[in-house]
Design a protein around this nucleic acid. Structure first.
Lengths: 340, 340
DNA sequence: TTGTACGCGTTATCAA
DNA sequence: TTGATAACGCGTACAA
């Protein structure tokens, strides 16, 4: 009841322990530099007062925040949620906090969020995908904030990345589709503008067709924002096209699930009449029936790796090394295996 | 190239514009208090230098961070991810940033995270569920950090909450199950220790049984951490019990999906042989087959409402008002409707 | 090993 | 309407 109304500061602790603020600070940050007996006294005082350091002050004094920012398109997609959770876990283990922002796939919002996070003094930044204006990277450089790109792997890019080969993986999957005998392929892609993962996946399909000697007319494309309902709508439209595709590849599992659902309500059998593929391997992919043939991406592994690499960059241990996380095709029931 | 290596400060802007730092600050925070002409000059300087305020400094000076902390059990569950996304959107709209931490359902970790976030100067805190030690609430009070509880509604509790009536909703669902003629009910609950939502749901089932005049022996309970696989395992165990339940209610949809999958691989027909219910109404619930009868919770609405209420508290407009978000049962195929 | 004293970038108070 | 200046709480040379 008679307690002070405001939080205790370093000063309060120092007085309580009968030492200087410098000593208290040292006790907390480099305990080795203070003798045992005083340290005990100080820690007791810390405990008694329930002292917690004021991080804003620490940021200013040390020019270091022990916080990392992450800007993702949306948390409301299992793949980002999962990767982010792993990212955060790893961060926490190393004593960092996470500031998240989401861009809703909108570049202007992302730019805004980047500025906000930098202003908040984050030590490093996790970004999704490489594609953004140069000025943003200039800005980060000016502010000396290390940035790491995830969900995409482009070793030659300006920023280091921890991700996977979207293009190659999708190409492999498309070859699998071709091998199953399909010659009319529909592709339901996420919006490619400002989303290099989506674009790379489209290119992957084109690669496969080109390698197999098929013309571009083999493929018909629809772009739509991610979402189950959008996938369903796109699939319905796809079924109207002429020639009608016998296989519909989707830019991610969410779209594929929508397609699958629409096929069902249209009375189109999968994979009998039309094959469907996804990308990501979210939990849903295994549960849905028919289960979804898709590309498995180890999101957790990527999140963890991204965190440790970014921290290495922040702490000056690395200049930013790109690593490619390997993916693999998970063959399930929505695409019949090639008959050979 | 000849550019300064460090980020511009208020001082730099002031010099560039030929005014004092105070004026620059005013331009940014209360533009009305500065005359048009000077403001223009200042803003031009801000633009030219690419100035972004240092928020740590602002926090110290203003004792206000415009950031809100949220501690959720995990992001890797669609319901929290969705609610959190909505929470963040609303926050952003009002000029606040979000600091997230996750507790993995572990009270000690949560306590730690709370201290961390408070130390970081968050203006307010979002917590999931009411159940935690008094000392934590004392701590928050001492530091004068308003806290709002979500995903749970208990108007009589110490902390205000924005959530729903877990107990009542589950009770309603259980009555539906009883009405369908089931007399042996299995309940697969999440871990109830430290999780009042889980506990309330169990109590809801008990309420329904009591009201209907059935003894406790009508129900058999298994507790397990959330997760599809855990749900599957629990279901398998449930099927060994004697008497074998004809309806298995699950603490959430994730468990229910696991149960459904296990039923399938066990060759048990749903709902013919065993009915299954969930809670939350995640997207999966509608997609899976048979589709899941469950309780629909408007997570997005809750997230948004929580954000605006918490901001009202932070800004002194509200002392913390609890609001109950209404839920409703979504009747699908995993439970046959009562025959009347 | 410990203490003194300054600076970090901003806001707010008070005068001008 | 604007400017000078004192906080804000901490880390860290530097000195003792």
């Amino acid at each position: 009841m008679g307690k002070s109304r405001t939080a205790p500061t370093l000063n309060d602790v120092a007085k309580e322990a009968g030492v200087s603020t410098a000593t208290v600070s040292r006790c907390l940050n480099s305990p080795a530099r203070v003798v045992d007996e005083t340290r005990k006294r100080v820690l007791k005082a810390v405990d008694k007062l329930g002292y917690t350091p004021n991080i804003a002050a620490r940021i200013m004094a040390a020019n270091r925040s022990y916080s990392i920012g992450a800007i993702i398109p949306t948390m409301d997609n299992a793949i980002f949620a999962r990767g982010l959770q792993a990212f955060q876990d790893q961060l926490r283990e190393k004593g960092y906090s996470l500031l998240v922002a989401s861009s809703a796939y909108r570049p202007e919002i992302e730019k805004d969020q980047i500025r906000t996070l930098v202003a908040r003094g984050v030590d490093g930044l996790l970004l999704i995908g490489h594609e953004r204006k140069h000025e943003i990277y200039d800005y980060l450089e000016q502010h000396q904030v290390p940035a790491l790109v995830a969900w995409s792997y482009m070793p030659e890019a300006r920023q280091p990345s921890v991700g996977f080969d979207n293009r190659g993986a999708m190409c492999d999957l498309a070859r699998r589709v071709l091998a199953a005998g399909h010659r009319h392929i529909g592709l339901i892609s996420g919006v490619t503008e400002g989303n290099d993962r989506a674009l790379s996946r489209v290119e992957g399909v084109r690669d496969a067709l080109a390698k197999a000697g098929h013309g571009a007319e083999t493929m018909t494309l629809i772009e739509t924002p991610y979402g189950i309902d959008n996938g369903a709508r796109a699939f319905a439209e796809m079924m109207q096209r002429n020639p009608r595709p016998t296989a519909v590849m989707c830019g991610n599992d969410v779209l594929a699930v929508g397609a699958l659902r629409e096929a069902q309500s249209l009375g189109i059998s999968v994979p009998g009449e039309v094959a469907i593929t996804g990308f990501d391997d979210i939990e849903l992919a295994e549960i849905i029936s028919p289960s979804l043939t898709t590309v498995h991406v180890p999101h957790r592994e990527m999140g963890r790796k991204a965190a440790s690499e970014l921290i290495d960059m922040v702490e000056g241990r690395s200049a930013g090394q790109s690593t490619c996380i390997s993916t693999h095709i998970v063959s399930r029931h929505s695409l019949v295996a090639p008959k050979n």
